[in-house]
Simulated assay, not measured.
Amino acid sequence: MGRYRFILWRPLQLVPVLLGVSLISFLLVHSIPGDPVRVLLGTRATASVIEATRAQYGLDQPLALQYLYFLKNLAAGEFGKSIIFKVGIPKLVVGRIVPTLFLLGYAILLSVVIAIGLAVLAALYRGRLPDQLVRVYSTAGLGLPAFWLGIVLIILFSIELGLFPVSGYGETPLEHLHHLFLPSLTIALALSPVLIRNLRASLLVEMEADYVKAARSRGIAEARIFRRHVFRNSLIPTITLLGVNIGWLIGGTVVVEQVFSVPGLGSLMVSSIFARDYLVVQVVTLAFALAVILTNFIVDIVTVALDPRIKL
């Protein structure tokens, strides 16, 4: 149990990280040109109405005081109300978080399947045609922008072949799988090249390790050595790399949700930024930061569980 002692103190790091994220997001969103009250009321609103609305939402206070009020409300569980959507922010975020979580889980699953399949193929056929093709894909895939890849997939599979919807989320779980396949595949095709390169390299190193040679000399079947030893040990750095890339993955959903019109947190953040809906942007940013921290925490636990030699 000593190896898992970090589980007790690691959550304490959550507080300063979230405070830093909240401060940076607060300063950045308030530096965006424009006034959310004018966006809300339109160009014909009188000066008195604008000032009254600013006072209603606390936007007439100094920035430092607004930030302190924001922290105070967060500590009390009061997230405020969206200026543009006119509903409580918790209700707004909860309504949008499920599509984003579904998309993230779907994309991670596809990324892992693609990465494991192609990396194992490349390692087993090292130097031959399958390995060369996988290496070309993993190199070319690093330079493909997610928004461009999404548009290409829409043109090919939605418009030309009519196999998948252009946008939306669907109503039932099966419809979710159908509607979100192309968005998830877009993210997976952008993420998997990094995982493939890492896993392929780890597999090749493990396949030449001394303990593998010793197992072969004892007559143990190659498939059993690969499955029980080589593959498991090679997964550890790849899992760590996947955890590091979760931040990029979450950021990628913002762009992909816009391309495919998925009603998730990413599209909510973009629309809130354009509308200068400060509170919504800050809360969604904190939600993304919390997701990244918790994911890295889970990755640390899995890494320690896979390799008894690792201590955090």
Rank of each mutant, 00 (worst) to 15 (best):
R232V: 09
L142I: 00
G252I: 14
L41Y: 04
R96I: 00
A115N: 11
R197D: 09
S234T: 03
S138D: 07
I114A: 04
L18Y: 06
A291V: 15
R96F: 13
L110F: 11
R3C: 01
T285C: 05
L204K: 06
G95H: 15
V254C: 09
K213I: 15
P193L: 02
L161M: 06
F274N: 01
A115H: 10
A221G: 08
R3H: 08
P130L: 03
R54D: 00
S158H: 03
I151N: 07
L19K: 13
S25Y: 15
L174Q: 04
V194M: 14
G143L: 08
V256I: 04
V262M: 07
A190V: 09
E78D: 09
P62A: 00
G168Q: 09
Q132A: 05
G219K: 09
A47P: 08
A305F: 15
S82L: 09
L23A: 05
N73L: 01
W148N: 00
S48K: 10
P11M: 03
A305S: 14
L191H: 12
D277P: 09
H179A: 11
V39R: 13
F70E: 02
L182F: 04
K86I: 10
V166T: 04
I187T: 03
L41R: 05
G251L: 14
T53Y: 02
L59W: 10
P183S: 01
L306K: 15
L19E: 03
E78S: 05
S234C: 12
L12M: 10
V113C: 03
V21Y: 11
L312R: 15
S82T: 07
F274G: 00
G162I: 08
I108W: 11
F85S: 04
A146I: 06
L174T: 01
Q282M: 05
V292D: 02
D60A: 03
P308S: 05
A122H: 14
V21C: 13
R216D: 01
F70Q: 04
